[in-house]
């Protein structure tokens, strides 16, 4: 029988710990497939965050680091400066990258570090059980914004692609979502491009992936997809924010 599809060898056989309906699984697969598509299987180091993807080192089948909360871009910088020829990526959530780790990501971008950053934005702290994230939408209820996020009290949700694309050292920034087949295909292209640019000697490359968290949003997987479309995409418009390679 002809094999028409195989799981990418860049993912181990370890069973994901992610909740049903969570988009991390799709994102992991797209990252792993992109690495394999580019022939980087034996020339890649990944850096996992603190957050729901904390165990990513068990899933990506390559040399992996587990970084302290928010510090993945600094850790990746240290790796890349020793091994400039190796593909280095970070995989970070919104608490990690957009809150505690803003200093590290902003300066990695300013230095134009030749890295690929996969940024999962699900508007909530998943692993600690649904607290308000810097990306939590105004009015969104979480365990630390039980009355809904107040803009007056907490400020507006942070827009990472918009912010990083202003930095001269940022080479490529695109926001994608995983809510439809068409968008997943677009996301795959963006992630592959972010890896390709790095290997062509460019940086910093970031793909922001809008992602669902059915468990902490209190919605079914299908309702969560709908919530993402109706609430997140209007505030976090999809598209290319910066692409120096296309200029």
């Amino acid at each position: 029988m002809a094999v028409v599809f195989e799981k990418t060898k860049m993912l181990t056989d370890t069973v994901f710990h992610y909740c049903p309906g969570c988009n991390h699984g799709i994102a992991h697969r797209l990252v792993a497939e992109s690495i394999e598509d580019l022939g980087l299987e034996d020339n890649v180091i990944g850096v996992a965050p603190v957050g729901c993807a904390v165990f990513a080192y068990n899933y990506f089948n390559c040399d992996m680091y587990e970084a302290a909360h928010g510090r993945a871009p600094a850790v990746a910088t240290g790796i890349k400066r020793v091994h400039p020829e190796v593909c280095v990526f970070t995989y970070q959530g919104d608490g990690d990258l957009a809150s505690i780790g803003t200093n590290e990501i902003v300066h990695a971008a300013h230095r134009g570090e030749k890295l690929t950053v996969i940024f999962i934005n699900n508007a909530i702290y998943g692993m600690t059980g649904g607290q308000m994230a810097p990306t939590t939408l105004v009015g969104q209820k979480t365990t630390t914004s039980p009355y809904g996020r107040s803009e007056e009290w907490c400020g507006a949700p942070i827009k990472i692609c918009e912010m990083l694309s202003q930095i001269p050292g940022c080479y490529y920034a695109e926001r994608v979502a995983l809510n439809s087949t068409a968008n997943i295909i677009k996301a795959k292209k963006a992630i592959t491009k972010a890896f390709r640019y790095q290997m062509e000697g460019h940086g910093l490359n970031i793909v922001e992936v809008l992602s669902t968290c059915p468990t902490n949003w209190g919605l079914s997987p299908v309702e969560a997809m709908k919530w993402l479309e109706e609430n997140m995409i209007p505030y976090y418009p999809l598209g290319v924010y910066k692409d120096k390679g296309a200029e």
Binding site: V47, Y65, A67, A68, R71, A74, V75, A76, T77, G78, I79, K80, R81, V82, H83, E104
Partner: peptide
């Protein structure tokens, strides 16, 4: 953290 990254290599 850069040290952590480089030391790991």
């Amino acid at each position: 953290n850069m040290v952590y990254g480089a030391a790991g290599t």
